[in-house]
Design a binder for these strands. Structure first.
Length: 422
RNA sequence: GCGAUCGUAGCUCAGUCGGUUAGAGCGCCGGUUUGUGGUACCGGAGGUCGCGGGUUCGGAUCCCGUCGAUCGCCCCA
């Protein structure tokens, strides 16, 4: 008789209660702030041809070969659930001719999918906020984008998080730096961790953010990007930092902050909890709360014209863990003491909600239990439709200011129940 | 892909040197008291102790496997 209940897919989550409220608060705040900055809302498909992500991200990486949620449709086409917003947005920009709007500020949010092992703050289906400025080569775009991020975090009430900022320079600077790093680490390869010896071949920049203490010693005196920056790249970075200072956005230089993918240029950044902060404790080892950078090389990899762009994404779940949103409580509980007054209860409920107050009707169990239930909801006031008397009287108690407002508003609505309210 | 920890009531958990009918709190349902009352009191329902195998006279407890969860490593778009 009892069939087995199917289980949720690994790495998916059902969000409810306080967490769901926090999640909604993050999204609502993002929507509000993004409008202040005149970022335009876009909606995009949740899945694309695998190629869209494969070409954007780089076919060779683990990311594409192992960590995307890909499958074949009935026509044998390889599709992928979007693992990020940027590639799909770039595709949309190209296929819809959004060049005509360039430079264009875009914002979106929604679910993303990665085929990974779940851990704290990392799920297979997760949710991000995303903001991009496409078609703007100027450092002012980076500044505006970061100002948006900074204001968002402030309006969410998140503290103890700092903008870590770095530059990867232009393509030439980046290559020279990379070569110098390989030279540096190759010299001490025997003393590096196994993982980093591997990275030396595949992704040398990543050695810089290794967690292994054996590597950290050599990271400290590794060559710095600044030595390899072209004049132009240096000027760009200086414009970004002076712009941030002018806009009142606090930042810290993070010389080891890198991006794994080759299409990144110039600005790279992450908002990371300060060591020892409450935010750091809440997030565990997956602690970056918002990250992004400039990806001037991406559009070309999708067959488009050279198009400068800069953007960021932020995990909604992670932000929600840092948010302290006091839930708006219940205004009025309506206790219907006797079942023959239940229709008056419905009428009162409608009138109260029409007047803009939240309410909850309680009409089961004994009269005493109904009252107890009402009390447990912790409302600002309780409206009781009594069982005794002539069947029309009621009591209302609680926060005086609220009670008076309710009575006044209900009176002006000419609701049937209002007649019995003095 | 690798590692560690953990799976007992709807929820949070107790219970394991192996031993009669497996417990608490919360929640749910019912009743009592009170009689317009601030969360009382009493009672009830609800568990093949994740699943499968093994050792044993006897397994929630020990062993193996499996599934799931959590946290971390790798990776991080």
């Amino acid at each position: 008789m009892t069939a087995k209940t199917p289980q949720a897919i690994r790495g998916t989550q059902d969000i409810f209660g306080a967490e769901a409220e926090a999640f909604a608060f993050v999204v609502e705040t993002f929507e509000r702030v993004r409008k202040l900055y005149r970022f335009r809302r876009v909606e995009m498909p949740v899945f694309e041809r695998t190629e869209v992500f494969g070409r954007a991200i780089g076919e060779t990486t683990d990311v594409v070969s192992k960590e995307m949620y890909s499958f074949e449709d009935r026509g044998g086409e390889s599709l992928t659930l979007r693992p990020e917003f940027t590639a799909g947005m770039a595709r949309a920009y190209l296929t819809n001719g959004w060049r005509q709007h360039a430079p264009v500020k875009l914002a979106t949010h929604g679910p993303l999918f990665r085929y990974e092992r779940p851990q704290k703050g990392r799920y297979r289906q997760f949710h991000q906020l995303d903001a991009e400025i496409v078609g703007a080569a100027e450092p002012q775009a980076d500044v505006e984008l970061l100002a948006l991020a900074d204001q968002l975090l402030r309006e969410l009430g998140i503290e103890g998080v700092t903008l870590q900022l770095n530059t990867l320079g232009d393509a030439g600077s980046r290559e020279a730096w990379r070569a110098a790093l390989v030279g540096h680490f190759r010299g001490v390869a025997g003393e590096l961790s196994e993982d980093s010896r591997e990275r030396l071949e595949k992704n040398p920049l990543r050695i810089l953010d290794s967690k292994d203490p054996r590597d950290r010693r050599f990271v400290a005196d590794a060559p710095k990007i600044d030595r390899f920056l072209s004049d132009e790249a240096l000027r760009f970075f200086e414009s970004v930092t002076t712009g941030l200072d002018a806009a009142g956005v606090k930042w810290a230089r993070a010389e080891s902050l890198v991006r794994g993918l080759d299409y990144y240029r110039h600005t790279a950044f992450e908002f990371v909890p300060d060591e020892g902060s409450a935010a750091a404790a809440a997030l565990g080892s997956q602690s970056t709360v918002l990250g992004g950078g400039r990806y001037d090389g991406l559009m070309e990899s999708l067959g488009g014209p050279p198009t400068p762009a800069v953007g960021w994404a932020a995990g909604i779940e992670r932000l929600a863990m840092l948010v302290d949103c006091e839930k708006r409580g219940l205004d009025l509980a309506i206790v219907v003491e006797s079942d023959n007054r239940i229709w008056q209860g419905f009428a009162a409920n409608s009138a109260i909600r029409d007047a803009g107050f939240s309410s909850e009707l309680i009409a089961s169990g004994s009269a005493k239990k109904r009252f107890d239930k009402a009390v447990k909801l912790n409302p600002k006031g309780i409206l009781t439709l009594t069982a005794s008397g002539d069947g029309t009287d009621f009591k209302i108690s609680g926060n005086d200011e609220l009670v008076n407002q309710v009575i006044e508003k209900m009176a002006t609505r000419g609701r049937h129940v209002t007649k019995s309210i003095k």
